[in-house]
Design a protein around this nucleic acid. Structure first.
Length: 904
RNA sequence: GGGCGGAUAGCUCAGUUGGUCAAGAGCGCCUGCCUUACAAGCAGGAGGUCGUGAGUUCAAAUCUCUCUCCGCCCACCA
């Protein structure tokens, strides 16, 4: 035994060993052919550029917890893993690598560049999936999908074509969010707005042929070169006389009309607003209403163009300063105020977005949003926690069209072909395009150069993982039939819009099916100061180091233990040492479990039960042979099992971990194992002892099973060590225990509680009197009634050993020794004989406070019970409980009082 | 401007439909222990007017409203 069970659990070797064994035995692979009911989860595909961070740890552990639990419950379980090609992130990465060799992507051209990206992907991409294995995730690796795989690409292309043909995808010239850094369009969701302290400049626009001027406010004076009008509100009497006249744009000296438009708010600023259709979404709308020219004065890289005269070639923010200076010189600035306003930033590049006028592809969202809204409102898809539904609804009811084209090279190329005469069509290939357009096969077509937004492949994830349209046409696959809809999606709330909502749309639109039933929105993990973990802040510990230090089981357990549904997690992290104290919860617990196993293995050796104890053997003892302690632990075990499954069913994972943690540590280890030592120490009852150990081993195996989904490695290791299992067997594919309701007994638990309270009281009194723990004491327990007396007698040995009471006298109305201290627990009187003299005053004080406590509570309870309304309204069991409590408290009070009087 | 979440022991937080909650855990702190698995442990202990004010109820940490303070999300006012 000794060599098998080290004194301290060391996870490193164990975890590595078991993961390879599991892989070797293919226990994670799912079949779409079985009759078994299925349980499926789609892994949110991490970016191909990604490395493991703590968000993944929580997210993946949650999924694995459910996957393993359901697998043990007999479902055909399939967890679909994959990786996302992550357009911008990956392209940026590879560009940077080329740049270090002084090569730009233009030097090598599109085709060659894409080759380079694939090379990079093969070499460095998807590291994260390897890292995930350290956590023990049990996904079906044979089904791993990369969003750029051929099967997925075929589906993406086909979806584009269908939506195009149905008019849900269109091309349009619009103001979109432009990232000057990545030089591509972005969707609204990829822009985060932040408050920025800036300046509000009020500029003078002179009226043509007049010495008068009007004042116009702007935060972006560098855009004046694109001004094509000045707008006033049609009802603003201050300015209506100017309608029909022209204004002169400062510096440019362009003559522009003064127009009337509701957009100008008389309450804001001067009431006059400059109109720059090419550089502001609102102005763009105004421009359309008034048929104004769109003058683009900024290049895609954020540098001012030739239309800005002397500022040509200057970067936008630098130009702003210079232009302000110039305006000042020309005395064209009325005033400058400090101004706080919102600016959009690129989610990925971090630089301020430029509203940019360009031709892009869009998806019409309204028709799709209607389904998506209804499916969640009607509870066909449920969110946990439910409050996210509001956020979801708000987004969908105010949805705008989705800009899906990206001016990148890495991604799914837009399957649209253009004829020289300006027509275009969506098709899966050039040949098909020619056919569709019905033009001669030798015509020259050009494919659109843009690629699709990464999320345009992600929103098909529920379908592409199951190989829908893998060849561009197959609507049905075995996986789709078996595993769609999936049962659970675990993801971070910040991608509800990006991903969750869109998957619901696509899956329902193309398959008339929901992608998943339940959506679990994970907690955000923060550092000790409440900041989000992020690379740039440097407050993100490396999960692999943490796993190495504490063990995967420990990290899994701790994370689950710390994550209440819908609440953020604050983790104290020591960045110097990479210590996370809260991980000790799991590590210590694993060690506790290990040592309990170690002890049981010892007993197994002692009674030579190693070979003769098949784990599944039925209960080894009859009901009559079981002591109250045995029945108590059995009752506790069953109610713990019942409660933990209830918790899991309601996605209260922290509750599940807490329930079982308390049970294993407090009930099983602190009490039951200690009692077991006592019960099996009698060498005259070997056969009974053997049976009892069998009983406990049987119970322990079930405990391991309940813990397996959250701590797969250590439970597997212990299970194999104790029962000498061969490598092909695994807890992962054993059956999850089923609770026995009839073994749950409140009566037994309450009665056993009294024994616990008595033991604790004796220990407490001992400490109070400064009696060394090693010293045995003479103790008298006068039971409150015959039934209790019988049980206490029965547990005489247990009480005696656990409280170091020897001799221990149990009876009713026992004579108390002259020198003793007394306490009453639920009508049971405990008297400890002392050799030394007793400090009478201290004793009186102690008893007095107990008397006062009881009197106060008796008073409260009496008031309650004499309240007619309480008697009439409260449920019967509550009343009964109060009545019994009152009697018990009164009896206890009586006894304490008489002891108090004895001291006088 | 709209929406959402939070405020419970020194710290981090549990507390399900109001009544077995006369409020719990872990860490930290104090006292004592290497008790035939575990010092990553064992036993005992100190520590809380459950953010404020009101209301509903026989009964409120739990439900309603007010206020205060934190955090997040959404929104085109130059």
């Amino acid at each position: 035994m000794q060599e098998k069970f080290a004194k301290t659990y060391d996870p490193k070797i164990v975890e590595h060993k078991w993961y390879s064994v599991w892989l070797k035995n293919n226990i994670f692979e799912a079949s779409n052919k079985t009759e078994k009911p299925k349980y499926s989860i789609l892994m949110p595909p991490p970016n191909v550029t990604g490395i493991l961070h703590f968000g993944h740890i929580l997210n993946q552990t949650l999924q694995d917890l459910y996957i393993r639990w359901k697998r043990m419950k007999g479902y055909e379980v399939c967890w679909f893993p994959g990786i996302d090609h992550a357009g911008i992130a990956t392209q940026t990465r590879v560009e940077a690598e080329l740049e270090s060799q002084n090569i730009t992507k233009y030097d090598i051209g599109r085709e060659k560049f894409i080759e380079k990206v694939w090379e990079w992907k093969e070499k460095y991409g998807g590291i994260i999936l390897q890292q995930l294995k350290k956590l023990g995730v049990s996904c079906d690796w044979s089904r791993t999908l990369f969003t750029m795989d051929e099967s997925a690409s075929n589906a993406v292309r086909e979806v584009f074509i269908r939506l195009f043909d149905e008019g849900l995808i269109y091309r349009g010239k619009r103001i979109i969010n432009w990232s000057p850094l990545s030089q591509t369009a972005l969707s609204d969701e990829e822009v985060i707005s932040r408050e920025v302290k800036g300046k509000l400049f009020t500029l003078r626009y002179y009226i043509e042929n007049s010495p008068d001027y009007i004042c116009v406010s702007t935060v972006r004076p560098e855009t004046i070169f694109g001004d094509v009008a000045v707008a006033i509100n049609p009802n603003d009497n201050r300015y209506t006389h100017l309608l029909g006249k022209n204004a002169i744009v400062p510096l440019v000296n362009r003559i522009v009309p003064i127009i009337a438009d509701e957009y100008a708010d008389p309450e804001f600023g001067t009431g006059c607003v400059k109109i720059t259709p090419a550089h502001d979404p609102n102005d763009f709308e105004v421009g359309l209403r008034h048929s104004l020219e769109q003058v683009n004065t900024i290049n895609p890289d954020g540098i001012l163009n030739e239309l800005t005269g002397e500022f040509n070639g200057i970067e936008r923010f630098k130009a702003r300063k210079l232009i302000v200076h110039k305006l000042e010189e020309a005395n064209l600035i009325e005033k400058v105020e400090d101004y706080v306003h919102n600016v959009g930033f690129s989610q990925r590049g971090g630089e301020p977005i430029e509203p940019y006028l360009s031709v892009q592809w869009f998806v019409k969202m309204k028709p799709l949003a209607e389904y998506a809204l209804e499916l969640v409102k009607s509870d066909r898809i449920q969110f946990y926690p439910a409050h996210w539904v509001k956020t979801y609804e708000h987004w969908l009811t105010n949805i705008r069209d989705w800009c899906i084209s990206r001016q990148l090279w890495w991604g799914h190329r837009i399957p649209v072909y253009y004829t020289p005469d300006g027509r275009h069509i969506a098709a899966s290939s050039e040949e098909e395009a020619l056919k569709k357009l019905n033009i001669p096969p030798d015509s020259n077509l050009e494919q659109d150069t843009d690629v699709l937004d990464t999320w345009f492949s992600s929103w098909l994830w529920p379908l592409t993982t199951m190989k829908w349209l893998y060849d561009g046409q197959s609507e049905e696959t075995e996986d789709l039939k078996k595993f769609l809809p999936t049962d659970l999606l675990v993801t971070a709330p910040d991608i509800i819009f990006f991903w969750v909502a869109r998957m619901i749309m696509a899956t329902y639109y193309f398959k008339k099916e929901i992608p998943f039933r339940d959506v679990y929105l994970t907690s955000t993990i923060r550092d000790g100061l409440g900041r989000k973990l992020s690379k740039s802040l440097g407050n993100s510990p490396d999960p692999l180091i943490i796993i190495d230090k504490y063990g995967a089981d420990a990290v899994r357990f701790s994370m689950i233990y710390l994550s209440p549904l819908g609440q953020d997690i604050k983790m104290d992290i020591n960045f110097k040492t990479q210590d996370i104290p809260s991980m000790e919860i799991g590590r210590n617990f694993a060690n506790k479990l290990w040592n309990a196993a170690r002890f049981l293995a010892l007993k197994q050796d002692q009674f030579n039960l190693y070979e003769v104890c098949p784990a599944n053997e039925e209960l080894a003892l009859t009901n009559e042979q079981l002591t109250i302690a045995d029945k108590w632990i059995r009752s506790r075990y069953n109610s713990v099992l019942k409660k933990s499954e209830e918790a899991l069913n309601n996605y209260r994972v922290n509750e599940y971990s807490k329930i079982i943690y308390d049970f294993v540590w407090r009930d099983f280890c602190d009490w039951y194992i200690e009692i077991l030592k006592i019960q099996t120490s009698d060498t005259n009852t070997i056969p009974y002892n053997r049976s009892l150990i069998k009983f406990v081993l049987n119970l322990f195996e079930r405990i391991l099973k309940i813990l397996h989904p959250i701590m797969p490695f250590i439970t597997e290791e212990i299970w194999h060590l104790i029962w000498n299992k061969d490598e092909e067997s695994s807890l992962s594919i054993s059956s999850f225990p089923i609770f026995n309701d009839w073994d749950i007994s409140d009566d037994i638990e309450e009665t056993f509680n009294i024994i616990q309270m008595i033991v604790e009281e004796i220990r407490s009194l001992r400490a109070l009197m400064n009696i060394p723990p090693s010293k045995e004491l003479k103790v008298f327990i006068s039971a409150g009634n015959e039934a209790i007396e019988k049980i206490l007698q029965n547990q005489h040995n247990v009480i005696s050993v656990m409280s170091k009471s020897n001799p221990l006298v149990i009876g009713q109305n026992l004579e108390k020794p002259e020198k003793s201290i007394v306490s009453v627990i639920r009508e049971n009187e405990i008297a400890i004989e002392l050799n030394s003299t007793i400090n009478i005053e201290n004793e009186k004080k102690r008893l007095k406070s107990e008397i006062q406590r009881l009197e106060k509570n008796i008073n409260i309870t009496e008031n309650k019970l004499s309240n007619e309304k309480f008697i009439n309204n409260a449920p019967e069991d509550v009343i009964l409980y109060e009545k019994e409590k009152l009697i018990s408290m009164k009896n206890s009070l009586h006894k304490i009082k008489s002891n108090y009087e004895r001291l006088n």
